[in-house]
Amino acid sequence: MPRIIVDVMPKPEILDPQGKAIANELPRIGLTGFTGVRQGRRFELTVAGEVTDEVLAQAREAAEKLLSNPVIEDVVSVSELAEEN
């Protein structure tokens, strides 16, 4: 079954407490190569048939209307997952 991937991230100007907590912990476990962490969310929408432009448009609408909260989050990508196998 084809899938559409939606990635949602907190808006850059919005505090991301989750990312902050993880970023603070990384150096404590010896991983010092990172200056920041932001934590977003990934959704996988399964499609029955082909991923047409229309289905993608619906996914974009779902992302804007339901999957993200436009007050504090951005939809950063809506894309078809490349076939596995």
Binding site: E13, D16, K20
Partner: peptide
């Protein structure tokens, strides 16, 4: 305006 986001752990 932009809303404030809380960090209860902080």
């Amino acid at each position: 305006p932009a809303v404030q986001v809380g960090d209860p752990f902080a």
